[in-house]
Computed example of a mutant assay.
Amino acid sequence: MADLLPLATLVGDAWEDYGLVDSGCGRKLERYGRYRFIRPEPQAMWQPALPQAEWDKADGEFVPASDEDGGGRWYYHRPVPAEGWPLGWREARFTASCTPFRHLGFFPDMAPVWDWLREQVAGKTDPAFLNLFGYTGVGSQALAAAGAAVTHVDASKKSVAQARENAALAGIAERPIRWIVDDAGKFAAREVRRGRRYDAILLDPPKFGRGPNGERWQIEEGLAPLLADCRHLLDADSRALFLTVYAVRMSALAIGELLAQLFADLPGKVECGELAVREEARGLLLPTAIFARWSRHD
Rank of each mutant, 00 (worst) to 15 (best):
L117F: 10
D199L: 05
G256R: 02
K157C: 06
F37E: 04
G71S: 04
C25K: 15
S295I: 02
G19F: 00
S295D: 05
S156G: 13
W114M: 13
A58M: 03
P287Y: 00
R78E: 01
R175M: 12
W179G: 13
G60Q: 02
D67Q: 08
L286G: 03
A240M: 08
L286M: 13
L241K: 04
Q261C: 12
V21D: 01
A145P: 02
L266R: 11
P79W: 04
F242Q: 01
A163T: 09
W15D: 05
S140E: 06
D265I: 03
A170F: 00
R282V: 00
G222V: 01
P100C: 13
Y75F: 13
T288F: 02
L243N: 01
G273N: 08
M110R: 11
A44L: 08
A149V: 11
E68P: 00
E279Y: 03
N166I: 02
C230P: 01
A65E: 11
H297V: 03
D67N: 06
A167L: 08
Q261Y: 07
I172P: 08
A168L: 14
R178N: 08
A292R: 03
H77I: 07
E68Y: 06
E279H: 03
D22G: 11
F291W: 02
P206L: 00
A161G: 07
L275N: 11
S140F: 03
Q47E: 14
F94Q: 15
L234I: 14
A236F: 07
L10D: 09
L233I: 10
G137E: 06
F291R: 02
F107Q: 09
G256I: 05
M45G: 14
W217Q: 02
A224Y: 01
F101W: 15
G211N: 06
D22F: 10
Q162L: 07
A92E: 11
T244K: 04
G195I: 14
R90C: 15
V138C: 07
A53M: 05
F107M: 10
V21Y: 03
V277M: 02
A122P: 12
V153C: 05
Y32E: 06
F242E: 00
P6W: 15
E165H: 11
L266Q: 11
G195F: 08
V121Q: 12
R296M: 07
S140H: 07
D126L: 12
R296N: 08
K124W: 12
V121C: 09
E54H: 09
L284T: 04
R39W: 04
R282E: 07
L259F: 00
W179D: 08
L20Y: 05
C230K: 10
Q261N: 13
L117I: 07
L202S: 05
R196Q: 12
I290P: 03
T136Q: 08
A281G: 01
F208I: 12
